[in-house]
Write a protein that binds this DNA or RNA. Structure first.
Lengths: 193, 193
DNA sequence: AATAATGTACCAAACGGTCGGTACAATAAA
DNA sequence: TTTATTGTACCGACCGTTTGGTACATTATT
C-alpha cells in the first residue's frame, strides 16, 4: 500500500462515518478535511470532486457490507441463512447505537429524486441484496420449507424494504425494537419457528 | 383570510412540495422565493427563519395527512379501517408518481442524528399514526378478527415502519410494486382475506 | 394615523472547486 | 557518478457562488 493509497483509504473511511451520520449533502469537503487532516489540495488530488468521492464511498461501503453479510452466514439450511443475514443486519446497527442508519437507504432518500446517478447506484445495491435473499428463499421453496403462497422474489423485495423501514425507525427512536419486531414478523411470514 | 394569511399559506404550500422532493436541507430560502415570487423581506416577516418555516411545514403536512387518512376510512369493521388507511397511503403516493416519498420519513432520515427537535417532532407524528392503527387492531382483537398471536401495539409499529420502507423503495424504483406487496403481506399477517 | 404587508439592498460565512507551486523519490542521460 | 527529467504526493491561498439572515424604506389595508 503506497502512501497515496493509504491517504485515499483514510479519507474514504472518515467520509463514510460522516456521511452515515450527517448525510451526503450535509457533509462538506471541509468536514472531511477537518476530520482527516488531509489538506484541500491533496483531497482534490485524490478525488476529482465531491461527486466522485461520494460515489467511491457508496461503492466502498457496499463492498464492505456484502462481505460482512456473507461472513455472517453460518447455517446450512436456506431459511437459516436468511435468518443469519437479518441477525447480522441487526447486530451491525446495534453496534453503532442505531446512529447513522443505513447509508444506502439514507442516500436513496436524499438523492433519488434529484440525482439519477446516485439513484441507479443505490438500486443496484438493493437489487444485489434482494437477489441473494431470493436465492435462499427459492432454495427453501424447493425443499418445501417455505410457507405456502410465498413467492421468493416479491418476498425478498419485501424483506429488504421492511428492514430499511425498521432501520429508519430504530435510528429515529434510538431503540432496537423496530428491527427486532420486523425480523420477527418476517420470520413468521416465511415460516421460521 | 387576510392577504398575509394567504401569503403564508402559499409559502407553506410551495415549500412543502419543494421539501418533499429535495429534502429540507437541500431546499434553500431562495428556492422558495423563486417558486412563490414572495420577496425575501416578506418571507422573513412571515417566518422567523428556516427552522421555524421547516417546523411549521412539517406540522401543516401532518395536519393535512391525518385529515386525509381519516376521510378515507369508509369501512365499518376495524380491520377494514386498517385496510382503508393503507389503501389511502398507496393512493396518495400513486398520485404523485412516487416522487418525493413520505415527507416525515425523509425528514426523519435527514435530521434525526443532527437535529433533536426535528426528530422529536417526527416521532410524535409516527406515534400518532401508530396509536390510530393500534386502536383498530385492538378492536379487531376483541372481536376475534385478528390473527392469533398478533399484538396490536407492536403490529401497529411494524405496519408504519414497513410502510415507510416500502414508500422509500417505491420512490427509488418509481414503481408501486413495493407498496402493493407490503400491504399484501401486512394483510396476510393480521388476517385480512 | 397606525399597523400590517411588501420590496430592495445588503451582509458575513460557508460552499465546492481551482490554482500555482513545493517536496521528494525514482529513473534516465551525461 | 553526477546531473536532468519525470511522476506522485501534498500544500494553502484564492475564486465565484450560494447560503441564511438583517436593515430599512415603501406601500396597502384597516
Amino acid at each position: 500500500m503506497t502512501k497515496g493509497e493509504e491517504t485515499r483509504a483514510r479519507v474514504l473511511d472518515s467520509a463514510m462515518a460522516l456521511v452515515n451520520r450527517k448525510g451526503l449533502r450535509n457533509t462538506s469537503m471541509q468536514d472531511i478535511i477537518d476530520e482527516t487532516g488531509v489538506k484541500k489540495g491533496n483531497l482534490y488530488f485524490h478525488f476529482a470532486g465531491k461527486d466522485e468521492l461520494g460515489r467511491s464511498l457508496i461503492m466502498e461501503a457496499s463492498d464492505r457490507y456484502f462481505e460482512y453479510l456473507s461472513k455472517s452466514i453460518t447455517s446450512g439450511d436456506p431459511l437459516g441463512k436468511v435468518r443469519d443475514i437479518l441477525g447480522a443486519v441487526l447486530r451491525f446497527h446495534r453496534r453503532t447505537g442505531f446512529a447513522g442508519g443505513c447509508i444506502f437507504g439514507n442516500t436513496a432518500l436524499e438523492m433519488s429524486d434529484t440525482d439519477g446517478e446516485y439513484a441507479a447506484l443505490i438500486r443496484d445495491i438493493f437489487d444485489r441484496w434482494v437477489s441473494i435473499l431470493a436465492g435462499y428463499l427459492r432454495e427453501a421453496g424447493m425443499m418445501g420449507a417455505l410457507s405456502p403462497g410465498i413467492k421468493p422474489e416479491p418476498m425478498a423485495r419485501h424483506i429488504v424494504s421492511a428492514m430499511e423501514g425498521s432501520i429508519m425507525m430504530a435510528r429515529l427512536y434510538k431503540r432496537e425494537g423496530p428491527m427486532v419486531e420486523c425480523i420477527g414478523y418476517i420470520e413468521k411470514l416465511i415460516g421460521i419457528k
